[in-house]
Design a protein around this nucleic acid. Structure first.
Length: 349
DNA sequence: CAAATTTGACCTTC
DNA sequence: GAAGGTCAAATTTG
Protein backbone atom coordinates (compact mmCIF):
# COMPACT_ATOMS: atom_id res chain seq x y z
CA UNK A 1 0.00 0.00 0.00
CA UNK A 2 2.86 2.25 0.81
CA UNK A 3 4.15 1.65 -2.63
CA UNK A 4 0.87 2.75 -4.11
CA UNK A 5 0.98 5.93 -2.15
CA UNK A 6 4.48 6.57 -3.31
CA UNK A 7 3.47 6.22 -6.89
CA UNK A 8 0.47 8.43 -6.46
CA UNK A 9 2.44 11.06 -4.68
CA UNK A 10 5.02 10.97 -7.36
CA UNK A 11 2.34 11.33 -9.98
CA UNK A 12 0.79 14.28 -8.24
CA UNK A 13 4.14 15.86 -7.83
CA UNK A 14 4.88 15.37 -11.45
CA UNK A 15 1.55 16.82 -12.41
CA UNK A 16 2.18 19.90 -10.40
CA UNK A 17 5.58 20.21 -11.88
CA UNK A 18 4.13 19.95 -15.31
CA UNK A 19 1.55 22.55 -14.56
CA UNK A 20 4.15 24.96 -13.27
CA UNK A 21 6.47 24.44 -16.15
CA UNK A 22 3.86 24.47 -18.80
CA UNK A 23 4.37 28.05 -19.89
CA UNK A 24 8.07 27.41 -20.25
CA UNK A 25 7.88 24.16 -22.08
CA UNK A 26 5.04 25.04 -24.33
CA UNK A 27 7.33 25.00 -27.31
CA UNK A 28 9.55 22.27 -26.06
CA UNK A 29 7.71 19.24 -27.18
CA UNK A 30 10.24 16.78 -25.99
CA UNK A 31 10.17 18.17 -22.51
CA UNK A 32 6.46 18.37 -22.59
CA UNK A 33 6.39 14.81 -23.66
CA UNK A 34 8.68 13.68 -20.92
CA UNK A 35 6.64 15.45 -18.34
CA UNK A 36 3.44 13.89 -19.47
CA UNK A 37 5.17 10.59 -19.63
CA UNK A 38 6.34 10.94 -16.09
CA UNK A 39 2.88 11.62 -14.79
CA UNK A 40 1.48 8.76 -16.68
CA UNK A 41 4.06 6.29 -15.55
CA UNK A 42 3.56 7.21 -11.97
CA UNK A 43 -0.14 6.71 -12.16
CA UNK A 44 0.47 3.55 -14.06
CA UNK A 45 2.66 2.27 -11.29
CA UNK A 46 0.03 3.13 -8.74
CA UNK A 47 -2.58 1.43 -10.79
CA UNK A 48 -0.52 -1.64 -11.12
CA UNK A 49 -0.02 -1.94 -7.42
CA UNK A 50 -3.68 -1.34 -6.77
CA UNK A 51 -4.58 -3.97 -9.28
CA UNK A 52 -2.29 -6.39 -7.57
CA UNK A 53 -3.85 -5.64 -4.26
CA UNK A 54 -7.27 -5.94 -5.72
CA UNK A 55 -6.62 -9.19 -7.38
CA UNK A 56 -5.50 -10.54 -4.07
CA UNK A 57 -8.56 -9.19 -2.40
CA UNK A 58 -10.67 -10.25 -5.36
CA UNK A 59 -13.95 -9.01 -6.60
CA UNK A 60 -13.63 -5.36 -7.24
CA UNK A 61 -14.36 -5.34 -10.87
CA UNK A 62 -12.66 -3.52 -13.58
CA UNK A 63 -15.92 -1.79 -14.15
CA UNK A 64 -15.70 -0.23 -10.78
CA UNK A 65 -12.22 0.87 -11.44
CA UNK A 66 -13.05 2.26 -14.80
CA UNK A 67 -15.98 4.10 -13.41
CA UNK A 68 -13.84 5.71 -10.85
CA UNK A 69 -11.51 6.92 -13.44
CA UNK A 70 -14.32 7.93 -15.70
CA UNK A 71 -15.49 10.15 -12.97
CA UNK A 72 -12.07 11.63 -12.60
CA UNK A 73 -11.79 12.21 -16.26
CA UNK A 74 -15.14 13.83 -16.46
CA UNK A 75 -13.81 16.39 -14.07
CA UNK A 76 -10.94 16.88 -16.34
CA UNK A 77 -8.39 16.21 -13.72
CA UNK A 78 -5.64 15.60 -16.15
CA UNK A 79 -6.49 17.91 -18.92
CA UNK A 80 -6.88 21.54 -18.26
CA UNK A 81 -7.45 24.09 -20.97
CA UNK A 82 -3.83 24.81 -21.37
CA UNK A 83 -3.09 21.21 -21.89
CA UNK A 84 -5.80 20.98 -24.45
CA UNK A 85 -4.26 23.90 -26.23
CA UNK A 86 -0.94 22.16 -26.24
CA UNK A 87 -2.48 19.12 -27.72
CA UNK A 88 -4.15 21.16 -30.38
CA UNK A 89 -0.82 22.50 -31.32
CA UNK A 90 0.67 19.06 -31.46
CA UNK A 91 -2.15 17.90 -33.62
CA UNK A 92 -1.55 20.75 -35.97
CA UNK A 93 2.01 19.73 -36.20
CA UNK A 94 1.05 16.19 -36.88
CA UNK A 95 -1.14 17.21 -39.71
CA UNK A 96 1.63 18.82 -41.56
CA UNK A 97 4.72 16.84 -42.33
CA UNK A 98 6.64 19.99 -42.79
CA UNK A 99 5.72 21.01 -39.35
CA UNK A 100 6.81 17.65 -38.13
CA UNK A 101 10.22 18.23 -39.48
CA UNK A 102 10.09 21.51 -37.79
CA UNK A 103 9.36 19.71 -34.60
CA UNK A 104 12.40 17.63 -35.13
CA UNK A 105 14.52 20.63 -35.70
CA UNK A 106 13.04 22.26 -32.75
CA UNK A 107 13.88 19.33 -30.56
CA UNK A 108 17.32 19.18 -31.87
CA UNK A 109 17.90 22.68 -30.88
CA UNK A 110 16.44 22.14 -27.52
CA UNK A 111 18.26 19.04 -26.66
CA UNK A 112 21.55 19.89 -28.14
CA UNK A 113 21.43 17.46 -30.96
CA UNK A 114 19.80 14.55 -29.35
CA UNK A 115 16.18 13.85 -29.68
CA UNK A 116 15.40 11.12 -27.24
CA UNK A 117 11.76 10.93 -27.92
CA UNK A 118 11.94 11.10 -31.63
CA UNK A 119 15.11 9.42 -32.55
CA UNK A 120 14.00 5.86 -32.32
CA UNK A 121 10.88 4.46 -33.66
CA UNK A 122 7.85 5.81 -32.03
CA UNK A 123 8.16 9.42 -32.96
CA UNK A 124 5.33 11.54 -31.86
CA UNK A 125 2.40 9.77 -30.50
CA UNK A 126 -0.89 11.35 -29.98
CA UNK A 127 -3.75 9.37 -28.67
CA UNK A 128 -7.01 10.87 -29.53
CA UNK A 129 -10.03 9.54 -27.96
CA UNK A 130 -12.59 10.09 -30.60
CA UNK A 131 -15.29 7.95 -29.39
CA UNK A 132 -16.47 5.07 -27.45
CA UNK A 133 -19.24 3.82 -29.51
CA UNK A 134 -21.22 1.81 -27.17
CA UNK A 135 -22.40 -0.40 -29.87
CA UNK A 136 -23.65 -2.99 -27.54
CA UNK A 137 -25.73 -0.77 -25.38
CA UNK A 138 -29.10 -1.54 -26.73
CA UNK A 139 -28.02 -4.85 -28.00
CA UNK A 140 -29.50 -6.87 -25.29
CA UNK A 141 -30.45 -9.29 -27.92
CA UNK A 142 -28.25 -11.55 -25.96
CA UNK A 143 -24.92 -12.98 -26.56
CA UNK A 144 -24.95 -14.82 -29.71
CA UNK A 145 -22.15 -16.01 -31.76
CA UNK A 146 -18.65 -16.87 -31.29
CA UNK A 147 -18.16 -16.55 -27.60
CA UNK A 148 -20.80 -19.03 -26.78
CA UNK A 149 -18.61 -21.93 -27.48
CA UNK A 150 -21.34 -23.75 -29.26
CA UNK A 151 -19.87 -25.83 -31.97
CA UNK A 152 -21.80 -25.88 -35.14
CA UNK A 153 -21.01 -28.47 -37.71
CA UNK A 154 -18.72 -28.17 -40.67
CA UNK A 155 -20.30 -25.54 -42.78
CA UNK A 156 -19.19 -22.30 -41.31
CA UNK A 157 -20.26 -21.85 -37.77
CA UNK A 158 -22.73 -19.10 -37.34
CA UNK A 159 -21.09 -15.95 -36.32
CA UNK A 160 -22.40 -12.67 -35.44
CA UNK A 161 -20.94 -9.24 -35.67
CA UNK A 162 -23.40 -8.16 -33.11
CA UNK A 163 -21.60 -9.68 -30.24
CA UNK A 164 -21.95 -7.53 -27.25
CA UNK A 165 -18.53 -6.05 -27.63
CA UNK A 166 -18.11 -2.41 -27.16
CA UNK A 167 -15.96 -0.46 -29.48
CA UNK A 168 -13.43 2.05 -28.49
CA UNK A 169 -11.72 4.14 -31.04
CA UNK A 170 -8.51 6.01 -30.64
CA UNK A 171 -6.50 8.01 -33.07
CA UNK A 172 -2.78 7.59 -33.07
CA UNK A 173 -0.06 8.87 -35.32
CA UNK A 174 1.05 6.49 -37.96
CA UNK A 175 4.66 5.56 -38.17
CA UNK A 176 6.50 8.10 -40.20
CA UNK A 177 9.05 5.73 -41.55
CA UNK A 178 9.26 2.12 -42.49
CA UNK A 179 6.06 0.27 -42.84
CA UNK A 180 3.56 2.89 -41.95
CA UNK A 181 0.76 0.42 -42.10
CA UNK A 182 1.82 -1.30 -38.97
CA UNK A 183 -0.74 -1.15 -36.24
CA UNK A 184 0.00 0.86 -33.16
CA UNK A 185 1.55 -0.98 -30.32
CA UNK A 186 -0.41 -1.47 -27.22
CA UNK A 187 1.31 -4.08 -25.17
CA UNK A 188 -0.40 -7.06 -26.66
CA UNK A 189 0.37 -9.25 -29.56
CA UNK A 190 -2.05 -9.21 -32.44
CA UNK A 191 -2.56 -11.37 -35.41
CA UNK A 192 -3.89 -9.95 -38.58
CA UNK A 193 -6.78 -11.88 -39.92
CA UNK A 194 -8.18 -9.68 -42.59
CA UNK A 195 -8.00 -6.54 -44.58
CA UNK A 196 -10.74 -4.85 -46.46
CA UNK A 197 -11.42 -1.89 -48.60
CA UNK A 198 -14.00 0.24 -46.92
CA UNK A 199 -16.48 2.19 -48.89
CA UNK A 200 -15.69 5.85 -48.90
CA UNK A 201 -12.36 5.34 -47.27
CA UNK A 202 -9.17 5.89 -49.08
CA UNK A 203 -7.22 3.28 -47.19
CA UNK A 204 -8.07 -0.31 -46.40
CA UNK A 205 -9.01 -1.41 -42.94
CA UNK A 206 -6.98 -4.10 -41.26
CA UNK A 207 -8.43 -6.55 -38.80
CA UNK A 208 -6.46 -7.95 -35.93
CA UNK A 209 -7.28 -10.32 -33.15
CA UNK A 210 -5.36 -11.37 -30.09
CA UNK A 211 -2.68 -13.86 -30.92
CA UNK A 212 -3.93 -16.00 -28.10
CA UNK A 213 -7.50 -15.98 -29.21
CA UNK A 214 -7.58 -19.69 -29.62
CA UNK A 215 -5.42 -20.61 -26.71
CA UNK A 216 -7.19 -18.49 -24.17
CA UNK A 217 -10.37 -17.69 -26.02
CA UNK A 218 -9.30 -14.12 -25.79
CA UNK A 219 -11.96 -12.07 -27.57
CA UNK A 220 -9.90 -8.93 -28.03
CA UNK A 221 -9.83 -7.53 -31.52
CA UNK A 222 -8.87 -4.34 -33.15
CA UNK A 223 -9.26 -2.62 -36.45
CA UNK A 224 -6.66 -0.33 -37.84
CA UNK A 225 -7.46 2.21 -40.45
CA UNK A 226 -5.55 5.10 -41.82
CA UNK A 227 -7.36 8.39 -41.73
CA UNK A 228 -8.22 9.70 -45.16
CA UNK A 229 -7.54 13.31 -44.44
CA UNK A 230 -4.32 12.58 -42.72
CA UNK A 231 -2.49 9.37 -43.50
CA UNK A 232 -0.15 10.22 -40.68
CA UNK A 233 -2.83 9.22 -38.28
CA UNK A 234 -4.42 5.85 -37.92
CA UNK A 235 -7.72 5.12 -36.34
CA UNK A 236 -7.64 2.10 -34.08
CA UNK A 237 -10.86 0.55 -32.94
CA UNK A 238 -10.72 -1.94 -30.14
CA UNK A 239 -13.39 -4.47 -29.51
CA UNK A 240 -13.47 -6.88 -26.69
CA UNK A 241 -11.28 -7.17 -23.70
CA UNK A 242 -8.15 -9.17 -23.34
CA UNK A 243 -8.63 -12.06 -21.01
CA UNK A 244 -5.19 -13.33 -21.59
CA UNK A 245 -2.60 -11.84 -19.32
CA UNK A 246 -0.41 -9.27 -20.86
CA UNK A 247 2.67 -11.15 -19.89
CA UNK A 248 1.54 -13.88 -22.17
CA UNK A 249 1.41 -11.62 -25.08
CA UNK A 250 4.12 -9.14 -24.58
CA UNK A 251 7.70 -9.18 -23.59
CA UNK A 252 8.47 -8.62 -19.97
CA UNK A 253 10.97 -5.97 -20.56
CA UNK A 254 9.61 -2.94 -22.23
CA UNK A 255 11.56 -0.62 -24.32
CA UNK A 256 11.65 2.79 -22.80
CA UNK A 257 8.58 4.45 -24.11
CA UNK A 258 9.92 7.56 -25.60
CA UNK A 259 6.79 8.46 -27.34
CA UNK A 260 4.54 11.33 -26.96
CA UNK A 261 1.60 10.84 -24.75
CA UNK A 262 -1.24 13.06 -25.37
CA UNK A 263 -4.82 12.67 -24.65
CA UNK A 264 -7.22 14.52 -26.75
CA UNK A 265 -10.78 14.77 -25.78
CA UNK A 266 -12.39 16.12 -28.85
CA UNK A 267 -15.32 17.58 -27.17
CA UNK A 268 -16.78 17.30 -23.78
CA UNK A 269 -20.04 16.18 -25.19
CA UNK A 270 -18.37 13.41 -27.02
CA UNK A 271 -16.48 12.29 -24.06
CA UNK A 272 -19.10 12.11 -21.44
CA UNK A 273 -21.12 9.30 -22.87
CA UNK A 274 -17.97 7.55 -23.75
CA UNK A 275 -17.07 7.46 -20.17
CA UNK A 276 -20.29 5.98 -19.15
CA UNK A 277 -19.85 3.09 -16.81
CA UNK A 278 -21.15 0.60 -19.23
CA UNK A 279 -18.79 1.63 -21.89
CA UNK A 280 -15.87 1.54 -19.59
CA UNK A 281 -16.45 -1.76 -18.13
CA UNK A 282 -15.14 -3.59 -21.06
CA UNK A 283 -12.51 -1.46 -22.50
CA UNK A 284 -9.68 -3.30 -23.98
CA UNK A 285 -6.84 -3.49 -21.59
CA UNK A 286 -4.64 -2.42 -24.34
CA UNK A 287 -5.83 1.06 -24.58
CA UNK A 288 -2.38 2.37 -24.49
CA UNK A 289 -1.25 2.80 -27.95
CA UNK A 290 2.19 2.79 -29.21
CA UNK A 291 3.82 2.81 -32.51
CA UNK A 292 6.13 0.51 -34.12
CA UNK A 293 7.65 2.44 -36.85
CA UNK A 294 10.53 1.52 -38.97
CA UNK A 295 9.48 -2.05 -39.24
CA UNK A 296 9.47 -2.96 -42.82
CA UNK A 297 8.26 -6.46 -42.27
CA UNK A 298 4.69 -5.53 -42.52
CA UNK A 299 3.75 -7.72 -45.37
CA UNK A 300 3.78 -11.38 -44.97
CA UNK A 301 5.73 -13.54 -42.72
CA UNK A 302 5.72 -14.05 -39.06
CA UNK A 303 6.27 -10.81 -37.41
CA UNK A 304 4.75 -11.27 -34.08
CA UNK A 305 4.04 -7.81 -33.06
CA UNK A 306 6.09 -7.22 -30.02
CA UNK A 307 4.58 -4.24 -28.52
CA UNK A 308 6.41 -2.11 -26.10
CA UNK A 309 4.41 -0.51 -23.44
CA UNK A 310 3.56 3.07 -23.55
CA UNK A 311 0.75 4.92 -22.08
CA UNK A 312 -0.61 7.90 -23.84
CA UNK A 313 -1.97 10.37 -21.45
CA UNK A 314 -4.61 10.23 -24.04
CA UNK A 315 -6.15 7.33 -22.40
CA UNK A 316 -5.01 7.50 -18.96
CA UNK A 317 -8.14 5.88 -17.83
CA UNK A 318 -7.11 2.78 -19.55
CA UNK A 319 -3.58 3.22 -18.63
CA UNK A 320 -4.46 3.31 -15.04
CA UNK A 321 -7.11 0.72 -14.88
CA UNK A 322 -7.09 -1.46 -17.84
CA UNK A 323 -3.64 -2.21 -18.90
CA UNK A 324 -2.33 -5.21 -17.18
CA UNK A 325 1.09 -3.99 -17.54
CA UNK A 326 4.45 -4.37 -16.18
CA UNK A 327 5.84 -6.42 -13.44
CA UNK A 328 7.72 -5.01 -10.54
CA UNK A 329 10.87 -5.33 -12.45
CA UNK A 330 9.57 -3.46 -15.36
CA UNK A 331 8.92 -0.48 -13.24
CA UNK A 332 12.59 -0.01 -12.95
CA UNK A 333 12.93 0.11 -16.63
CA UNK A 334 10.06 2.49 -16.75
CA UNK A 335 11.45 4.89 -14.31
CA UNK A 336 15.05 4.69 -15.15
CA UNK A 337 14.69 6.62 -18.35
CA UNK A 338 12.31 8.96 -16.69
CA UNK A 339 14.91 9.99 -14.23
CA UNK A 340 17.07 11.01 -17.07
CA UNK A 341 14.27 12.90 -18.56
CA UNK A 342 13.64 14.76 -15.42
CA UNK A 343 17.20 15.61 -15.08
CA UNK A 344 16.91 17.10 -18.46
CA UNK A 345 13.81 18.91 -17.53
CA UNK A 346 15.12 20.18 -14.31
CA UNK A 347 18.14 21.53 -15.99
CA UNK A 348 15.87 23.46 -18.22
CA UNK A 349 13.78 24.91 -15.54
C1' DC B 1 8.23 -26.60 -40.05
C1' DA B 2 5.70 -23.47 -37.37
C1' DA B 3 3.71 -19.27 -37.22
C1' DA B 4 2.32 -15.11 -39.35
C1' DT B 5 0.28 -12.53 -43.33
C1' DT B 6 -2.39 -12.21 -47.56
C1' DT B 7 -6.50 -12.39 -49.90
C1' DG B 8 -10.65 -14.18 -52.03
C1' DA B 9 -14.80 -16.13 -50.50
C1' DC B 10 -18.26 -16.49 -47.27
C1' DC B 11 -21.40 -14.79 -43.56
C1' DT B 12 -24.21 -11.34 -41.18
C1' DT B 13 -26.48 -7.16 -40.90
C1' DC B 14 -28.92 -3.41 -42.64
C1' DG C 1 -28.02 -6.42 -52.64
C1' DA C 2 -24.34 -3.77 -50.61
C1' DA C 3 -21.07 -3.29 -47.12
C1' DG C 4 -18.53 -4.68 -43.20
C1' DG C 5 -16.52 -8.47 -40.70
C1' DT C 6 -14.50 -13.08 -40.57
C1' DC C 7 -12.72 -17.46 -42.24
C1' DA C 8 -9.33 -20.28 -44.05
C1' DA C 9 -6.36 -21.84 -47.86
C1' DA C 10 -2.31 -20.27 -49.89
C1' DT C 11 1.79 -17.99 -49.34
C1' DT C 12 5.66 -16.06 -46.97
C1' DT C 13 9.22 -15.86 -43.62
C1' DG C 14 12.47 -17.03 -39.90
Amino acid sequence: MEEVLNFIMHAIESSKKLELELPNIINHLEILFSSIDEVEKSFGGAKERVMMLLSSQHDITKTTLSNSFASMMSHDVFMNKTQHAQIDRLLDLMQNPFDMSHVLLENKMISGGDIPMLRSKGTLKIGEMVGRNVEGLEKSKGLEGEMQGIQTPPSRPKKSRKIDLEKRTVMVPAPQVGNTDMPPEDGFTWRKYGQKEILGRKYPRSYYRCTHQKLYLCPAKKQVQRVDENPNIVEVTYRGDHICHKSLTAPLSYPPPQQLLVNINNTQTTISPQLSPSSNSRWPQAANLGLRAGDASGSGGPSTTRYGIDYPVADMADTMFNSGSSSGNSMESLFAPMDDKWELDENKS
